[in-house]
Design a binder for these strands. Structure first.
Lengths: 187, 187
DNA sequence: CTCTCCGGAGAACGATCGTTCTCTCCCTGT
DNA sequence: ACAGGGAGAGAACGATCGTTCTCCGGAGAG
């Protein structure tokens, strides 16, 4: 038998793969069990319901997102470059073969009606990202009004890249962001 | 009994209301029957399957979108104003109490895995909108590279407004679009 | 070695859903 | 008035899903 921590990890990772690839409602708990190699009994001991598992998956995605953004910003010299690094991170993500959209947006569209806990996590993630961008904008010395514009570009790039299956959206959004930053700093 | 055309309209409108409010998978065909006041037998005579009904609903949404965009652009004096009119249309839409996101994006996130016909309609809609924006950009005399930037702002405004439940995203995206247009024309 | 207990495999259960079928009624043509 | 056909109401059917329960084997304590 395996350790409880490892079982939890394996279940969350398996659920993430399946939910992201096929959608939450299209994946049965039995498919999660098969992919994770953890019995249903064990899964339900770790997560009281499927919704709780979805929330755990989103928490994992949030950690991955934050780590990716931070790594991309690490070797940027200025706040301006750290803002643009967001779009470099998106660019690399969009080019991964399994990419098909932001998991938070997808799950929100699918479950926001019936699962308030899930909707809350999605909202928290988007709020936290907005706060991160706002801090970078302040560091760059640009007016606060720039921050939501950058966040909207990042959101739009994700859905455009997903639906159009076109990774170019990252570069297009990056160019737009650069223009907006320069205009905001010149004002 | 009612005319076949009217039955079709009533079914599509009822399905649109229910699908948009609760999600496609969360609404059973029996709920559509109750809301439309059209028997299941009749519904299945008009639409061979639920997926076909979803496609019909999206076609209706596309017509509404095009009409709304056209109406908003109607009293704009220049191509630049017709581009900005897109965001005025979004602003009015975001403020409607039943707004919770772009139906195309929501449905895409929910069904793109299992319903290729649905995914196709969503892709067509986004492509058509991109083409509309590209034409306006050409009319304004701006470089082609501006068009996808505007489209990304529109997409981002929709998801941001939906998840954050904040209609301000339209005005923020509009301001960003104005800055981008002016920068593109000055270059 | 034996008893006990924990966990895995998977059957079972109740609910729901998409789709079809049956039964009945009403409208129409003659 | 009467036969026939189409439409509505809703039961029926088969499949699936989330969740729980049963049964059995195997590991560890005495």
């Amino acid at each position: 038998m395996i350790d409880a921590t490892e079982a939890r990890e394996r279940v969350v990772e398996a659920a993430d793969r399946l939910f992201y690839a096929r959608g939450v409602q299209a994946v049965g708990m039995d498919a999660v069990r098969a992919e994770a190699g953890v019995s249903l009994k064990r899964i339900y001991a770790l997560f009281p319901s499927k919704d709780d598992l979805v929330v755990a998956v989103l928490h994992g995605r949030r950690a991955q997102w934050n780590a990716g953004i931070a790594a991309s910003a690490a070797d940027a010299a200025s706040a301006r470059d750290r803002i643009l690094a967001i779009f470099d991170f998106l660019d690399a993500w969009f080019r991964r073969p399994d990419f098909h959209g932001c998991a938070f947006i997808n799950v929100f569209g699918e479950l926001s009606g019936g699962a308030p806990g899930v909707a809350r996590v999605v909202r928290e993630q988007k709020e936290a990202f907005g706060e991160y961008v706002a801090q970078l904008v302040r560091d760059a010395g640009a007016p606060d009004s720039l921050a939501p514009q950058i966040a909207i570009l990042a959101e739009g790039a994700q859905t455009t890249a997903a639906i159009g299956d076109d990774p170019e959206a990252a570069a297009q959004a990056r160019a737009a962001a650069a223009t907006l930053i320069d205009a905001a700093l010149a004002a």
